[in-house]
């Protein structure tokens, strides 16, 4: 750890700032007036794989984010295109050093401040040498701290304080919640008491996904709310519309009527698991070609049912296909095009 100047503490008025670099317009903290903001010193940050996760964190914080890095300064709003606000320059570097000094962040250090809509610092992370893990994870930690939520599974509050912004954070996150390690062959009776969470391993699109969930959680909500696999849609939550159709061991089922915990040990395939990289499944391609959707909300379910239908191979005529597909409602009325797409893809599957 490098030396600290005056550390910013929770409860203090946040430092206002204006960074110019060589740009014509300054980027200043007044852009955030009236709303919460986050100032992140992340020396090695540049836009990459974590931008979507950062957006989610910023929405949760209701904040906009200023990222100060060696590659320039970004102002990052959760629902806008991310554009570099100020390109790197010697002038900018000097300004950043000065701002860092006011925040107690050394020139080689990383650190995060969260400021509320009244301009008061609500969260200040003591700077550490370098944030080599994800900025999104740091924001997640900040969000949880602010909302009084427990830190993510596998990390105690104390661990986090010590480890959060240092190298290896990500590793701790993803491996720290292990512990059982065995496949759920389940020769024994599994018991979860009312109101307690249960640890489950779901096999989804060929990957084991470990979750700690309420036993009441449906497979559908596990996908949508816990695994960010929102391609499987919730249309009725009662098995009456088919929007949530997934494959369970190759057969079409309603994920809404399936308890996630009861799906342990099954091979689950969702719409996200159909394409091979950029190569669409023939049914996906046929749905585009035949315009077999409009609003798109039922489409995942239609395609999953159709995948099972073609795999099973019993329904062949248009009328047979219509009967077998009747558990998938399309309110936009794309039915004729869906049938055409299925019949066209039949030859290629």
């Amino acid at each position: 750890m490098s030396s600290m100047t005056t550390p910013i503490a929770v409860g203090m008025v946040a430092p206002s700032f204006a960074l110019h670099g060589d740009a014509r317009r300054a980027l200043s903290s007044s852009e955030a007036r009236g709303r919460p903001w986050v100032l992140a010193f992340v020396r090695r940050w540049s836009p990459g794989a974590d931008t979507e996760a950062i957006r989610a964190e910023l929405r949760g914080l209701g904040a906009i984010l200023f990222i100060v890095s060696d590659a320039g300064v970004w102002s990052f709003r959760p629902d806008d295109d991310l554009e570099l606000s100020i390109a790197p320059s010697r002038q900018l570097r000097r300004e950043i050093a000065a701002l860092g000094a006011r925040c107690g962040v050394g020139t080689r250090d990383d650190g995060v401040l969260v400021v509320d809509d009244a301009g008061i610092v609500r969260f200040a992370h003591a700077p550490s040498s370098e944030l080599t893990s994800s900025l999104a994870d740091a924001l997640d930690a900040a969000g949880r701290e602010l909302l009084g939520l427990p830190t993510r599974p596998g990390i105690t509050r104390r661990d986090w304080a010590v480890m959060s912004l240092v190298a290896g954070f990500g590793l701790v996150l993803f491996h720290g919640c292990g512990g059982r390690g065995t496949e759920p062959a389940a020769p024994t009776t599994v018991v979860a008491k009312p109101g307690t969470e249960i640890e489950v391993v779901l096999r989804i699109n060929g990957q084991d996904r470990r979750l700690k969930i309420d036993p009441r959680t449906s497979l559908l909500d596990a996908l949508r709310e816990h695994l960010a696999l929102t391609g499987t849609r919730k249309g009725c939550d009662h098995g009456q519309c088919g929007a949530c159709t997934v494959l369970r061991d190759g057969h079409a089922v309603n994920a809404c009527l399936t308890l996630a915990v009861a799906a342990e040990g099954a091979e689950i395939t969702t719409i996200e698991g159909l394409a091979r990289g950029d190569r669409l499944h023939p049914l996906q391609a046929a749905f585009i070609e035949h315009d077999a959707f409009q609003c798109g909300y039922c489409t995942s379910g239609q395609i999953m049912s159709a995948v099972a239908l073609l795999r099973e191979g019993r329904s062949k005529t248009d009328d047979e296909v219509r009967q077998q597909m009747s558990g998938n409602i399309c309110r936009c009325g794309a039915y004729p095009n869906i049938i055409a797409a299925i019949q066209a893809a039949r030859k290629e599957v």
Binding site: E57, L280, A285
Partner: peptide, 25 residues
């Protein structure tokens, strides 16, 4: 022409109002 949002819709990639990712929602 095919829909320009077609690929999103057949891969489940488009998101609706209840699907926007929000931390600690």
């Amino acid at each position: 022409i095919d829909r320009v949002d077609g690929k999103k819709k057949v891969t489940g990639a488009q998101t609706y109002a209840a699907e926007v990712q929000v931390a600690n929602v």
